[in-house]
Simulated scan of single mutants.
Amino acid sequence: MAHRSENIVLVAWMLSLTSSLAVLFIGEVLGQIPCSLCWFQRAFMFPLAIVLGLGVWWRDPMVARYGVILAAIGAVIALWHLGVFYGLTPESIRPCSASGPSCSGSEMTVLGLPIPLLSLVAFGAIATLLITSLRKNPNE
């Protein structure tokens, strides 16, 4: 049963690594400057790739517990960003200013999809996978 749980964490790590590389591609290759909410989401996705990768390498059964916290916080920030993107968030709590990149402009899309939505899906999938792996090993 532990082997199956390790595979689930491996999939979560691959998703976090792919997401991290994707945002680096968007920023460094496509030249899109991240907004402040994008930076906060990166602050939780990048460590996920490292923490989950080390957990897979060391076969640490506790890594899912640490990873699910990072993924949940990242998902909350992505949800907030999605609210800003669609204009659902009150202006008084919008972190993006006129001097920096827009949190809701057309540059916040990739292949026609809002980046905050892609981020929310990635964080949600990672959290779901990690919770599933914890349920596979209830004694850990």
Results as ranks from 00 to 15, higher is better:
P34N: 09
G53L: 11
R42P: 00
L82H: 03
Y66D: 06
E91S: 15
S99V: 07
V9T: 10
P47G: 04
N137G: 02
G83E: 08
V63A: 12
I131R: 10
S36P: 03
L30R: 15
A122S: 15
I8G: 01
I50H: 02
H3Y: 13
I115T: 09
P90H: 08
P138M: 05
V11H: 06
P95Y: 08
C35Q: 09
W39V: 10
R4H: 09
S16M: 08
A64V: 03
S97M: 01
L113W: 08
R94D: 13
T128M: 10
E6A: 13
V29A: 11
V56Y: 12
R65N: 11
A98D: 10
I126M: 14
A122M: 09
L88A: 14
G53P: 09
V76A: 15
L120E: 02
A75L: 14
L111M: 11
L130R: 03
L88R: 07
I131D: 04
S133I: 03
Q41L: 01
E107S: 12
V84K: 00
E140R: 12
F25M: 14
A49L: 14
T132V: 10
I8V: 15
P47S: 06
A125C: 15
M45T: 15
V121F: 06
F44I: 02
P47Y: 07
L129K: 01
P34D: 05
M108D: 01
A75C: 03
Q32D: 04
V23Y: 10
W58Q: 14
K136C: 04
L134W: 04
S102Q: 05
I131F: 13
Y86E: 08
V63K: 07
A78C: 00
L17H: 07
S106V: 11
L21F: 13
F25V: 13
G105D: 12
L134V: 05
L130F: 05
Y66M: 13
E6I: 03
I69C: 07
W13Q: 14
S102P: 04
V11C: 03
A43Y: 12
A43P: 00
R59L: 10
V9S: 06
A75V: 01
A127D: 08
I126R: 05
L24H: 04
E140V: 14
L37V: 11
P61V: 10
S5I: 02
F25Q: 03
S16L: 06
C103T: 08
L17Q: 13
R65C: 05
A75R: 00
G100R: 07
P116K: 00
L17V: 13
S92W: 12
S97P: 00
A22E: 10
F85G: 02
P138V: 03
A127F: 14
C38K: 00
A78V: 00
L52P: 05
A78H: 00
L118M: 15
R94T: 13
G100S: 12
L54P: 02
P90S: 05
W13M: 15
W80L: 13
V110H: 09
L82R: 02
V68Q: 15
L37E: 04
C103F: 03
F44M: 14
L82G: 14
A64N: 13
R94F: 00
V110D: 01
W13T: 13
L24C: 11
S99Y: 08
I77W: 01
